[in-house]
């Protein structure tokens, strides 16, 4: 198994090795040690590979990920899994602001808390946060699912499009055009699958409340002027 010790190896050597992997075949697992808060660790992978990072990372870890499964055994700085296309990213600790921003696909699991702007402008990714999320999360979120086992901060889902938000705890406040919605059978089914994918077995989908777009701000209307 290739091991990259970032205390002695340049970050670029790691990322170049990850970019050189076989896109369609099997790849050996990678281990990254001593990340010490480095930025852009394991960014831009497009291959089925498991990457384990032993420690905390800085900005933009696992950005633009396709296919890879990346596990961070620590905390992640701002912009983790930003613009992910597919694959799976697991953060064992907390994630800083704008986790999963603009991500198109794949699954992002944050086992601790996520801070502000989690899932901002998400475009199809599934995000599961075991702890709480900060303010302005899912701002302008377009599609995908955000599942929060804890509480959500202020202005959840402001100017939301078609993303689905499921919160088990309290929501401090909803953003403009975001509203509470009924949990139908299809949502229970979806949530059951998302929780299973995230490895969560001790929480029932019925404990969540669904939030989504009221769809009143899609097109400009002068009556909504104050909400823009």
């Amino acid at each position: 198994m290739p091991v990259f010790d970032l205390a002695t190896t340049e970050l670029r050597a790691l990322n170049q090795a990850l970019h050189a992997l076989d896109k369609s075949g099997a790849n050996e697992d990678f281990e990254v040690t001593n990340p010490r808060g480095s930025h852009a660790v394991a960014v831009g992978i497009d291959a089925p590979v498991n990457v384990t990072i032993d420690g905390s990372v800085g900005y933009y870890c696992a950005g633009m990920n396709e296919q890879a499964t990346i596990t961070v055994k620590g905390n992640a700085g701002p912009g983790v899994a930003e613009n992910m296309m597919s694959g799976k990213v697991v953060i064992k600790g907390d994630a800083s602001q704008y986790a999963g921003a603009t991500a198109h696909g794949g699954l992002l699991v944050i086992e601790g808390n996520a801070s502000s702007r989690c899932g901002i402008s998400m475009k199809g990714v599934d995000i599961v946060v075991k702890g709480n999320i900060g303010h302005m999360s899912a701002f302008m979120a377009q599609s995908g699912n955000l599942v929060v086992l804890g509480d959500a901060g202020d202005a959840l889902g402001d100017s939301l499009y078609e993303a689905r938000l499921f919160v088990r705890g309290t929501v401090k406040s909803l953003g403009a055009d975001c509203e509470k919605k009924e949990m139908r059978a299809e949502h229970i089914e979806l949530l059951t699958k998302l929780l299973a994918d995230a490895g969560i077995t001790d929480v029932k989908p019925e404990e969540f409340t669904r939030y989504g777009s009221a769809r009143t701000l899609y097109n400009f209307s002068v009556d909504n002027f104050d909400a823009y």
């Binding site: 808060g37 905390n75 700085g77």
Partner: peptide, 27 residues
């Protein structure tokens, strides 16, 4: 500030309280 877009990380032990714009500063 309430928007909190300027980064901040803190660490506390029995020996100190530390602040850094990034975790890198604390390692």
């Amino acid at each position: 500030d309430p928007i909190a877009c300027k980064p901040a990380v803190m660490a506390e032990t029995d020996a100190y309280v530390a602040f850094g714009s990034e975790y890198r500063a604390l390692v």
